[in-house]
Design a binder for these strands. Structure first.
Lengths: 202, 202
DNA sequence: CTTGCAAGTGAGTGATTACTTACTTGCAAG
DNA sequence: CTTGCAAGTAAGTAATCACTCACTTGCAAG
Protein backbone atom coordinates (compact mmCIF):
# COMPACT_ATOMS: atom_id res chain seq x y z
CA UNK A 1 0.00 0.00 0.00
CA UNK A 2 2.85 2.34 0.80
CA UNK A 3 6.24 2.23 -0.98
CA UNK A 4 6.47 5.78 -2.25
CA UNK A 5 9.62 6.35 -4.34
CA UNK A 6 10.92 8.58 -1.54
CA UNK A 7 12.60 11.80 -2.62
CA UNK A 8 9.99 14.13 -4.05
CA UNK A 9 10.06 17.86 -4.88
CA UNK A 10 8.83 20.35 -2.31
CA UNK A 11 5.86 21.37 -4.39
CA UNK A 12 4.49 17.82 -4.49
CA UNK A 13 5.21 17.27 -0.81
CA UNK A 14 3.35 20.43 0.13
CA UNK A 15 0.27 19.23 -1.70
CA UNK A 16 0.64 15.81 -0.11
CA UNK A 17 0.91 17.32 3.35
CA UNK A 18 -2.25 19.37 2.80
CA UNK A 19 -4.25 16.36 1.66
CA UNK A 20 -2.88 14.17 4.44
CA UNK A 21 -3.73 16.74 7.08
CA UNK A 22 -7.23 17.01 5.70
CA UNK A 23 -7.64 13.26 5.57
CA UNK A 24 -6.55 12.88 9.18
CA UNK A 25 -8.85 15.74 10.19
CA UNK A 26 -11.81 13.59 9.19
CA UNK A 27 -11.12 11.42 12.20
CA UNK A 28 -10.00 13.72 14.98
CA UNK A 29 -9.82 17.40 15.75
CA UNK A 30 -7.39 19.18 13.45
CA UNK A 31 -5.50 20.75 16.33
CA UNK A 32 -4.87 17.35 17.90
CA UNK A 33 -3.09 16.10 14.81
CA UNK A 34 0.62 16.20 15.49
CA UNK A 35 3.39 16.60 12.97
CA UNK A 36 4.40 13.05 13.85
CA UNK A 37 0.95 11.84 12.83
CA UNK A 38 1.25 13.54 9.46
CA UNK A 39 4.77 12.27 8.88
CA UNK A 40 3.79 8.73 9.80
CA UNK A 41 0.82 8.84 7.42
CA UNK A 42 3.21 9.89 4.66
CA UNK A 43 5.94 7.36 5.49
CA UNK A 44 8.31 10.15 6.25
CA UNK A 45 10.37 11.25 9.20
CA UNK A 46 8.87 14.02 11.30
CA UNK A 47 11.74 16.40 10.67
CA UNK A 48 11.32 16.10 6.90
CA UNK A 49 8.04 18.01 7.08
CA UNK A 50 9.91 21.15 8.03
CA UNK A 51 11.82 21.07 4.76
CA UNK A 52 8.54 21.94 3.06
CA UNK A 53 6.75 24.16 5.55
CA UNK A 54 8.45 26.44 8.05
CA UNK A 55 5.87 25.87 10.80
CA UNK A 56 2.79 23.83 11.48
CA UNK A 57 0.70 26.96 11.16
CA UNK A 58 1.93 27.37 7.59
CA UNK A 59 0.61 23.88 6.86
CA UNK A 60 -2.81 24.79 8.22
CA UNK A 61 -2.79 27.99 6.23
CA UNK A 62 -2.15 25.98 3.09
CA UNK A 63 -5.10 23.78 3.99
CA UNK A 64 -7.41 26.78 4.25
CA UNK A 65 -6.17 28.04 0.88
CA UNK A 66 -6.93 24.65 -0.67
CA UNK A 67 -10.42 24.59 0.84
CA UNK A 68 -11.15 28.11 -0.35
CA UNK A 69 -10.14 27.35 -3.93
CA UNK A 70 -12.04 24.08 -4.10
CA UNK A 71 -15.21 25.20 -2.38
CA UNK A 72 -15.67 28.49 -4.21
CA UNK A 73 -14.97 26.81 -7.51
CA UNK A 74 -17.69 24.24 -6.84
CA UNK A 75 -20.13 26.92 -5.76
CA UNK A 76 -19.51 28.95 -8.90
CA UNK A 77 -19.87 25.90 -11.10
CA UNK A 78 -23.13 24.99 -9.37
CA UNK A 79 -24.51 28.45 -9.84
CA UNK A 80 -23.48 28.58 -13.48
CA UNK A 81 -25.21 25.31 -14.24
CA UNK A 82 -28.54 26.43 -12.78
CA UNK A 83 -31.38 27.76 -14.89
CA UNK A 84 -32.89 30.14 -12.33
CA UNK A 85 -31.77 31.91 -9.15
CA UNK A 86 -33.79 29.59 -6.94
CA UNK A 87 -32.36 26.64 -8.80
CA UNK A 88 -28.92 28.15 -8.26
CA UNK A 89 -29.51 28.22 -4.51
CA UNK A 90 -30.42 24.55 -4.55
CA UNK A 91 -27.41 23.66 -6.68
CA UNK A 92 -25.06 25.59 -4.40
CA UNK A 93 -26.57 24.02 -1.31
CA UNK A 94 -26.14 20.51 -2.63
CA UNK A 95 -22.69 21.23 -4.03
CA UNK A 96 -21.59 22.35 -0.60
CA UNK A 97 -23.06 19.29 1.07
CA UNK A 98 -21.48 17.00 -1.52
CA UNK A 99 -18.17 18.73 -0.95
CA UNK A 100 -18.03 17.88 2.70
CA UNK A 101 -19.39 14.40 2.13
CA UNK A 102 -16.38 13.93 -0.15
CA UNK A 103 -14.01 15.63 2.32
CA UNK A 104 -15.30 15.14 5.86
CA UNK A 105 -12.15 16.71 7.24
CA UNK A 106 -13.09 20.10 5.84
CA UNK A 107 -15.77 21.20 8.30
CA UNK A 108 -13.86 19.75 11.26
CA UNK A 109 -10.84 21.71 10.20
CA UNK A 110 -12.75 24.96 9.74
CA UNK A 111 -14.55 24.60 13.07
CA UNK A 112 -11.28 23.98 14.78
CA UNK A 113 -9.80 27.18 13.45
CA UNK A 114 -12.89 29.19 14.25
CA UNK A 115 -12.68 28.14 17.87
CA UNK A 116 -9.31 29.79 18.15
CA UNK A 117 -9.67 32.95 20.13
CA UNK A 118 -7.44 35.67 18.82
CA UNK A 119 -6.98 37.38 15.52
CA UNK A 120 -4.65 34.73 14.19
CA UNK A 121 -3.92 35.02 10.45
CA UNK A 122 -5.55 31.65 10.04
CA UNK A 123 -8.85 32.72 11.52
CA UNK A 124 -8.69 35.87 9.45
CA UNK A 125 -8.35 33.74 6.37
CA UNK A 126 -11.39 31.69 7.32
CA UNK A 127 -13.31 34.89 7.87
CA UNK A 128 -12.43 36.00 4.33
CA UNK A 129 -13.62 32.70 2.94
CA UNK A 130 -16.97 33.10 4.63
CA UNK A 131 -17.26 36.68 3.47
CA UNK A 132 -16.81 35.58 -0.14
CA UNK A 133 -19.36 32.87 0.37
CA UNK A 134 -21.85 35.44 1.61
CA UNK A 135 -21.14 37.70 -1.35
CA UNK A 136 -22.10 34.92 -3.69
CA UNK A 137 -25.25 34.17 -1.73
CA UNK A 138 -26.22 37.82 -1.73
CA UNK A 139 -25.81 38.00 -5.50
CA UNK A 140 -28.09 35.03 -6.06
CA UNK A 141 -30.67 36.31 -3.59
CA UNK A 142 -30.67 39.70 -5.31
CA UNK A 143 -31.19 38.04 -8.66
CA UNK A 144 -34.05 35.98 -7.26
CA UNK A 145 -35.59 39.09 -5.77
CA UNK A 146 -35.33 40.97 -9.05
CA UNK A 147 -36.99 38.10 -10.87
CA UNK A 148 -39.84 38.15 -8.38
CA UNK A 149 -39.11 34.58 -7.30
CA UNK A 150 -38.98 35.22 -3.57
CA UNK A 151 -41.37 37.01 -1.29
CA UNK A 152 -41.06 40.76 -1.36
CA UNK A 153 -39.64 42.16 1.82
CA UNK A 154 -37.57 39.07 2.57
CA UNK A 155 -34.61 39.82 4.83
CA UNK A 156 -31.63 38.82 2.69
CA UNK A 157 -29.21 38.77 5.60
CA UNK A 158 -31.49 36.39 7.46
CA UNK A 159 -31.93 34.29 4.32
CA UNK A 160 -28.16 33.98 3.94
CA UNK A 161 -27.75 33.17 7.64
CA UNK A 162 -30.40 30.47 7.50
CA UNK A 163 -28.86 29.01 4.34
CA UNK A 164 -25.48 28.66 6.02
CA UNK A 165 -27.08 27.49 9.24
CA UNK A 166 -28.95 24.75 7.43
CA UNK A 167 -25.66 23.41 6.08
CA UNK A 168 -23.87 23.80 9.39
CA UNK A 169 -26.68 21.99 11.13
CA UNK A 170 -26.24 19.04 8.82
CA UNK A 171 -22.50 19.07 9.41
CA UNK A 172 -22.89 19.13 13.16
CA UNK A 173 -25.43 16.37 13.04
CA UNK A 174 -22.96 14.21 11.14
CA UNK A 175 -20.30 15.02 13.73
CA UNK A 176 -22.66 13.94 16.49
CA UNK A 177 -23.71 10.75 14.78
CA UNK A 178 -20.23 10.08 13.48
CA UNK A 179 -21.39 9.24 9.99
CA UNK A 180 -22.59 10.88 6.81
CA UNK A 181 -25.13 8.21 5.93
CA UNK A 182 -28.39 9.63 4.72
CA UNK A 183 -26.91 13.08 4.75
CA UNK A 184 -27.65 13.92 1.16
CA UNK A 185 -31.28 12.83 1.40
CA UNK A 186 -31.74 14.94 4.49
CA UNK A 187 -29.99 17.82 2.79
CA UNK A 188 -32.63 17.82 0.09
CA UNK A 189 -35.45 17.75 2.62
CA UNK A 190 -33.93 20.57 4.64
CA UNK A 191 -33.37 22.69 1.58
CA UNK A 192 -36.95 22.08 0.48
CA UNK A 193 -38.17 23.42 3.79
CA UNK A 194 -35.80 26.36 3.56
CA UNK A 195 -36.90 27.37 0.10
CA UNK A 196 -40.55 27.01 1.06
CA UNK A 197 -40.16 29.91 3.44
CA UNK A 198 -38.45 31.93 0.77
CA UNK A 199 -40.45 31.44 -2.39
CA UNK A 200 -43.13 33.81 -3.56
CA UNK A 201 -46.64 32.38 -3.48
CA UNK A 202 -48.01 31.34 -6.87
CA UNK B 1 -11.26 42.38 42.93
CA UNK B 2 -9.87 39.08 44.19
CA UNK B 3 -9.38 38.28 47.89
CA UNK B 4 -11.48 35.15 48.25
CA UNK B 5 -11.56 33.91 51.86
CA UNK B 6 -9.50 30.89 50.76
CA UNK B 7 -10.53 27.54 52.21
CA UNK B 8 -13.88 26.50 50.75
CA UNK B 9 -15.73 23.18 50.74
CA UNK B 10 -15.34 20.85 47.76
CA UNK B 11 -18.91 21.28 46.66
CA UNK B 12 -18.52 25.03 46.27
CA UNK B 13 -15.16 24.67 44.58
CA UNK B 14 -16.59 22.22 42.06
CA UNK B 15 -19.28 24.70 41.08
CA UNK B 16 -16.69 27.46 40.92
CA UNK B 17 -14.44 25.38 38.66
CA UNK B 18 -17.33 24.66 36.30
CA UNK B 19 -18.27 28.32 36.00
CA UNK B 20 -14.66 29.41 35.63
CA UNK B 21 -14.04 26.88 32.90
CA UNK B 22 -17.13 28.06 31.09
CA UNK B 23 -16.15 31.69 31.48
CA UNK B 24 -12.69 31.05 30.07
CA UNK B 25 -14.21 29.02 27.22
CA UNK B 26 -15.88 32.18 25.97
CA UNK B 27 -12.48 33.43 24.93
CA UNK B 28 -10.55 30.46 23.64
CA UNK B 29 -11.12 26.86 22.69
CA UNK B 30 -12.12 24.78 25.70
CA UNK B 31 -9.44 22.20 25.04
CA UNK B 32 -6.72 24.86 25.08
CA UNK B 33 -7.63 25.92 28.59
CA UNK B 34 -5.08 24.45 30.96
CA UNK B 35 -5.56 23.55 34.57
CA UNK B 36 -3.11 26.34 35.34
CA UNK B 37 -5.40 28.82 33.59
CA UNK B 38 -8.34 27.70 35.66
CA UNK B 39 -6.38 27.77 38.91
CA UNK B 40 -5.03 31.24 38.16
CA UNK B 41 -8.51 32.56 37.40
CA UNK B 42 -9.61 31.23 40.79
CA UNK B 43 -6.60 32.50 42.74
CA UNK B 44 -5.67 28.96 43.60
CA UNK B 45 -2.67 26.74 43.08
CA UNK B 46 -2.88 24.35 40.18
CA UNK B 47 -2.56 21.28 42.37
CA UNK B 48 -5.52 22.34 44.46
CA UNK B 49 -7.90 21.68 41.58
CA UNK B 50 -7.22 17.97 41.87
CA UNK B 51 -8.60 17.95 45.40
CA UNK B 52 -12.02 18.55 43.87
CA UNK B 53 -11.89 16.68 40.57
CA UNK B 54 -9.82 13.58 39.91
CA UNK B 55 -9.00 14.54 36.32
CA UNK B 56 -9.50 17.36 33.89
CA UNK B 57 -11.97 15.21 31.99
CA UNK B 58 -14.13 15.03 35.13
CA UNK B 59 -14.23 18.83 35.16
CA UNK B 60 -15.41 18.93 31.56
CA UNK B 61 -18.00 16.30 32.31
CA UNK B 62 -19.33 18.47 35.12
CA UNK B 63 -19.55 21.37 32.69
CA UNK B 64 -21.66 19.33 30.29
CA UNK B 65 -23.94 18.32 33.14
CA UNK B 66 -24.37 21.96 34.12
CA UNK B 67 -25.18 22.96 30.54
CA UNK B 68 -27.68 20.15 30.16
CA UNK B 69 -29.54 21.10 33.31
CA UNK B 70 -29.64 24.80 32.54
CA UNK B 71 -30.49 24.56 28.87
CA UNK B 72 -33.25 21.99 29.13
CA UNK B 73 -34.77 23.85 32.03
CA UNK B 74 -34.92 27.03 29.98
CA UNK B 75 -36.37 25.21 27.03
CA UNK B 76 -39.08 23.64 29.14
CA UNK B 77 -39.92 26.96 30.76
CA UNK B 78 -40.12 28.62 27.35
CA UNK B 79 -42.41 25.95 26.04
CA UNK B 80 -44.63 26.09 29.10
CA UNK B 81 -45.07 29.83 28.81
CA UNK B 82 -46.22 29.69 25.20
CA UNK B 83 -49.84 29.77 24.16
CA UNK B 84 -49.56 27.66 21.02
CA UNK B 85 -47.17 25.12 19.55
CA UNK B 86 -45.80 27.61 17.00
CA UNK B 87 -45.41 30.14 19.76
CA UNK B 88 -43.60 27.48 21.76
CA UNK B 89 -41.11 27.00 18.92
CA UNK B 90 -40.41 30.72 18.86
CA UNK B 91 -40.02 30.87 22.63
CA UNK B 92 -37.65 27.89 22.64
CA UNK B 93 -35.62 29.37 19.81
CA UNK B 94 -35.19 32.70 21.55
CA UNK B 95 -34.57 31.08 24.93
CA UNK B 96 -31.73 29.09 23.41
CA UNK B 97 -30.26 32.17 21.74
CA UNK B 98 -30.54 34.16 24.96
CA UNK B 99 -28.85 31.33 26.81
CA UNK B 100 -25.71 31.46 24.75
CA UNK B 101 -25.73 35.25 24.65
CA UNK B 102 -25.61 35.04 28.44
CA UNK B 103 -23.00 32.23 28.36
CA UNK B 104 -20.88 32.53 25.24
CA UNK B 105 -18.62 29.77 26.47
CA UNK B 106 -21.36 27.18 26.09
CA UNK B 107 -21.37 26.68 22.32
CA UNK B 108 -17.58 26.88 22.13
CA UNK B 109 -17.36 24.21 24.76
CA UNK B 110 -19.87 21.92 23.06
CA UNK B 111 -18.24 22.32 19.65
CA UNK B 112 -14.90 21.49 21.15
CA UNK B 113 -16.18 18.24 22.58
CA UNK B 114 -17.98 17.30 19.39
CA UNK B 115 -14.79 17.59 17.43
CA UNK B 116 -13.24 14.88 19.52
CA UNK B 117 -13.01 11.74 17.46
CA UNK B 118 -13.65 8.70 19.58
CA UNK B 119 -16.49 7.50 21.71
CA UNK B 120 -15.34 9.38 24.74
CA UNK B 121 -17.85 9.48 27.61
CA UNK B 122 -17.93 13.23 27.20
CA UNK B 123 -18.99 13.12 23.60
CA UNK B 124 -21.55 10.51 24.49
CA UNK B 125 -22.96 12.86 27.06
CA UNK B 126 -23.23 15.66 24.50
CA UNK B 127 -24.98 13.26 22.17
CA UNK B 128 -27.53 12.51 24.89
CA UNK B 129 -28.14 16.21 25.43
CA UNK B 130 -28.86 16.71 21.76
CA UNK B 131 -31.13 13.69 21.69
CA UNK B 132 -33.22 15.14 24.50
CA UNK B 133 -33.34 18.44 22.71
CA UNK B 134 -34.66 16.71 19.60
CA UNK B 135 -37.26 14.87 21.64
CA UNK B 136 -38.64 18.16 22.87
CA UNK B 137 -38.65 19.60 19.37
CA UNK B 138 -40.44 16.54 18.04
CA UNK B 139 -43.12 16.85 20.72
CA UNK B 140 -43.81 20.48 19.83
CA UNK B 141 -43.81 19.76 16.12
CA UNK B 142 -46.27 16.91 16.63
CA UNK B 143 -48.53 19.18 18.65
CA UNK B 144 -48.36 21.82 15.95
CA UNK B 145 -49.17 19.23 13.33
CA UNK B 146 -52.14 17.93 15.29
CA UNK B 147 -53.46 21.47 15.68
CA UNK B 148 -53.19 22.00 11.93
CA UNK B 149 -50.76 24.86 12.38
CA UNK B 150 -48.07 23.61 10.01
CA UNK B 151 -48.31 22.38 6.44
CA UNK B 152 -49.48 18.81 6.09
CA UNK B 153 -46.73 16.52 4.91
CA UNK B 154 -43.98 18.55 6.54
CA UNK B 155 -40.87 16.47 7.22
CA UNK B 156 -40.50 16.70 11.01
CA UNK B 157 -36.92 15.47 11.00
CA UNK B 158 -35.99 18.15 8.48
CA UNK B 159 -37.87 20.75 10.49
CA UNK B 160 -35.95 19.83 13.63
CA UNK B 161 -32.66 19.82 11.73
CA UNK B 162 -33.32 23.24 10.26
CA UNK B 163 -34.35 24.59 13.68
CA UNK B 164 -31.07 23.49 15.22
CA UNK B 165 -29.12 24.57 12.16
CA UNK B 166 -30.60 28.06 12.35
CA UNK B 167 -29.32 28.40 15.90
CA UNK B 168 -25.95 26.88 15.11
CA UNK B 169 -25.59 29.23 12.16
CA UNK B 170 -26.09 32.19 14.46
CA UNK B 171 -23.56 30.79 16.89
CA UNK B 172 -20.95 30.24 14.21
CA UNK B 173 -21.54 33.68 12.82
CA UNK B 174 -20.85 35.14 16.24
CA UNK B 175 -17.68 33.06 16.49
CA UNK B 176 -16.54 34.40 13.14
CA UNK B 177 -17.32 38.00 13.95
CA UNK B 178 -16.15 37.65 17.53
CA UNK B 179 -19.14 39.40 18.98
CA UNK B 180 -22.79 38.80 19.84
CA UNK B 181 -23.95 42.31 18.93
CA UNK B 182 -27.17 42.32 17.00
CA UNK B 183 -27.50 38.62 17.52
CA UNK B 184 -30.92 38.69 19.09
CA UNK B 185 -32.40 40.89 16.38
CA UNK B 186 -31.04 38.59 13.73
CA UNK B 187 -32.32 35.59 15.65
CA UNK B 188 -35.85 36.94 15.37
CA UNK B 189 -35.47 37.56 11.64
CA UNK B 190 -34.06 34.09 11.05
CA UNK B 191 -36.79 32.44 13.07
CA UNK B 192 -39.40 34.43 11.15
CA UNK B 193 -38.06 33.03 7.92
CA UNK B 194 -37.91 29.54 9.37
CA UNK B 195 -41.48 29.55 10.56
CA UNK B 196 -42.68 30.99 7.26
CA UNK B 197 -41.65 27.77 5.55
CA UNK B 198 -43.39 25.77 8.20
CA UNK B 199 -46.72 27.41 8.79
CA UNK B 200 -49.92 26.34 7.11
CA UNK B 201 -51.34 28.82 4.65
CA UNK B 202 -54.35 30.78 5.88
C1' DC C 1 -7.09 23.32 74.35
C1' DT C 2 -6.26 19.76 71.10
C1' DT C 3 -6.79 17.17 67.60
C1' DG C 4 -8.27 15.19 63.09
C1' DC C 5 -9.07 16.09 58.63
C1' DA C 6 -10.47 18.61 54.56
C1' DA C 7 -8.37 22.08 51.80
C1' DG C 8 -4.30 24.34 50.06
C1' DT C 9 0.73 24.76 48.63
C1' DG C 10 4.69 24.28 45.70
C1' DA C 11 8.02 21.61 43.91
C1' DG C 12 8.45 17.70 41.35
C1' DT C 13 7.66 14.01 37.16
C1' DG C 14 7.08 11.78 32.95
C1' DA C 15 4.97 12.30 28.65
C1' DT C 16 4.26 14.92 24.63
C1' DT C 17 5.11 18.47 21.15
C1' DA C 18 6.89 21.70 17.61
C1' DC C 19 10.96 22.73 15.88
C1' DT C 20 16.45 22.32 15.22
C1' DT C 21 20.68 20.50 13.78
C1' DA C 22 24.48 17.69 12.19
C1' DC C 23 24.85 14.48 9.08
C1' DT C 24 23.62 11.50 4.84
C1' DT C 25 21.93 10.43 0.20
C1' DG C 26 20.10 10.56 -4.42
C1' DC C 27 19.99 13.03 -8.71
C1' DA C 28 20.84 16.03 -12.53
C1' DA C 29 23.80 19.47 -14.71
C1' DG C 30 28.57 20.57 -16.22
C1' DC D 1 33.18 11.25 -13.00
C1' DT D 2 32.18 14.84 -9.75
C1' DT D 3 30.02 17.97 -7.55
C1' DG D 4 26.40 20.83 -5.50
C1' DC D 5 22.17 20.98 -3.60
C1' DA D 6 17.46 19.67 -2.56
C1' DA D 7 15.37 16.15 0.21
C1' DG D 8 15.64 12.89 3.92
C1' DT D 9 17.11 11.02 8.61
C1' DA D 10 17.74 10.53 13.60
C1' DA D 11 18.74 12.33 17.65
C1' DG D 12 18.35 16.08 20.11
C1' DT D 13 15.97 20.45 22.94
C1' DA D 14 13.18 23.51 25.39
C1' DA D 15 8.58 24.23 26.57
C1' DT D 16 4.23 22.77 28.18
C1' DC D 17 0.85 19.87 30.34
C1' DA D 18 -1.89 16.86 33.49
C1' DC D 19 -1.19 14.85 37.53
C1' DT D 20 1.44 13.51 42.19
C1' DC D 21 3.34 13.97 46.66
C1' DA D 22 5.20 15.52 50.97
C1' DC D 23 4.08 18.89 53.69
C1' DT D 24 1.28 22.81 55.88
C1' DT D 25 -2.77 25.22 57.64
C1' DG D 26 -7.30 26.55 59.09
C1' DC D 27 -11.51 25.08 61.28
C1' DA D 28 -14.96 22.74 63.92
C1' DA D 29 -16.22 19.01 67.04
C1' DG D 30 -15.23 16.78 71.49
Amino acid sequence: MTAKPSRQPTEDRQAEIVLTLLRLAAGRSALDITTSDIAQAMNLSQGALFRHFPTKEAMRLAVVAWIETELLQRLDAARASASSPVDALRAMFLAHVDFFIAHPGVPRFIFGELQQADRTPLKERVRELMARYRERLAAVLDAASAAGLIRPGTDHAAAAALFLGAIQGLVIQSMVSGSVDGMRAQAEAVFGLYVQGLEAQP
